[in-house]
Amino acid sequence: MAVITVTINDELVSGRTGQSLLELVRERGIDLPTLCHLDGLEERGGCRLCMVEVGATNRLAAACVTPAQEGMVIYTHSERLVRYRRMILELLFAERNHVCAVCVMNGRCELQREAYTIGMDHVRYDYLTPDLPMDASHERFVIDHNRCILCTRCVRVCDSVEGAHTWDVMGRGVNCRVITDLHQPWGSSRSCTSCGKCVQVCPTGALHAKGSSVAEMVKHHDFLQWILDGREKKQWATRNGDPVEGGR
């Protein structure tokens, strides 16, 4: 593969033909925010967070879908780019009901992390507060549309990795929604293999496993009795409800 040279933030960087600008930037150790990109999935180019300035033309390009070419000059963190990224994040927060305090992904959410990193402390735009449903009909997983940012990682992983294509998108504009099986309840989906890949790739709390939400938290106080019984009476386990002498 031919070697190419690209100038990133005034530094010469070498890469290989066929690499995207994003790969090159990240190889260089520069942190470029992304939300729809995920290593291993085909690129979408939809979140527009990885926009970089290309050349002297002042034109912006999404790094994830722009192939690196010999002699390119790019800037990744100009004042304009940072301002735009913050605006895009604000737009995302204003679009749906992203209430971090009661979200299952609080602290581990990629959207939240990008907002923290860029220093987004408030949203200048109207919160659209749409009335969105949740679908908890699946036996193991939940989709909460309030947290969805329409990155379609779930759609892509389900189609190209699992090969089930259970997920797709319906509607257009802000009325877009990810759906299962032509908008049937997830629990009744016949194509879903319950593999859970969609849940693992979701950047926010939109897709999560059951039992992880705040309301589902259950405390098992009876564990104490179990330990005490084990220590004192050597009853470590139960078989058909009867104590087992001498442990297992």
Partner: peptide, 18 residues
């Protein structure tokens, strides 16, 4: 434009609404 935005990229999808 807001009605006709496809919803794929964030600036157009939410920006037109705002």
């Amino acid at each position: 434009c807001m009605d006709e935005s496809c919803g794929k990229c964030v600036p157009c999808r939410v920006g037109t609404v705002q």
